[in-house]
Amino acid sequence: MLDHTRPAFLPPRPGAGFKPQHFPAIMAAPSPVEWLEIHAENYMGEGGRPLAQLRALAERFAISLHGVGLSIGGEGALDAAHLARLKHLCTWLQPACFSEHLAWSSHDNSFLNDLLPLPYTAATLTRVADHIDQVQTVLGRKMLLENPSAYLAFAEAEMDEVTFLAEIARRTGCGLLLDVNNVYVSANNLGFNALGYIESFPHHLVGEIHLGGHDPDLDSDGTPLLIDSHGCPVADPVWQLYARTLQLGGAKPTLIEWDNDVPEWPVLAGEAALAARLLAGVAA
């Protein structure tokens, strides 16, 4: 059993996505990173090194548990076995926070390992709200829902993403995870105004912010198509959007995500130091 005396909330300071290769560096010396986020699905084994590392980390850091496989936007019922695994992990770990995505990833008993898009319609709203109610009931805690990065739009959409997220939060009582890089990527790819999105966002519902890197690719007409790669530093315009987010919503726990071509720990800690500098300038 873990010692549960550590903070039960995420501090409004920088955090980092945990990668096992960084474990020795994280444990060896303090850094600007004050909390860690883990992907829930990587800790659903029975034992061994992953859970031993998590136990050691959790004794020192507040942990944010981030699901990448619950398929909250799925047309079918939530995977009861997966929800049970999540509850088991939550009960053992007592994370400071649990979050998942506004997306779907499973259909008809196959898991597609990507965060797939949803049409923002009244029918989707009802389905997603029902699934979030179920998750919050089973886990016995409030969750945060994250805005996705998008590559395409749906002809059938009835409302914009901010309206959709605000209504989900109103119906379910869930909080929101604002991924500022996703806003920038989606705004470029779908042709909306990223600053307008940030300025209309319900910041009082935001429990956590994500920052990550994206890569430029080309659309069929030769214009930039941005890919949410999490494989490089946070881009300058995303830092600018983040600074505006902090002005509007105050200091929030802010995660640096780096999932592909993962660099040495000091590079991640350097990104966290940039976030710390911006966070220091605003009140919580």
Partner: peptide
């Protein structure tokens, strides 16, 4: 029903 930023079918996307 899947569209790019010009509202045209989103094959590349």
């Amino acid at each position: 029903g899947l569209l790019d930023r010009h509202g045209t079918p989103a094959t590349r996307r």
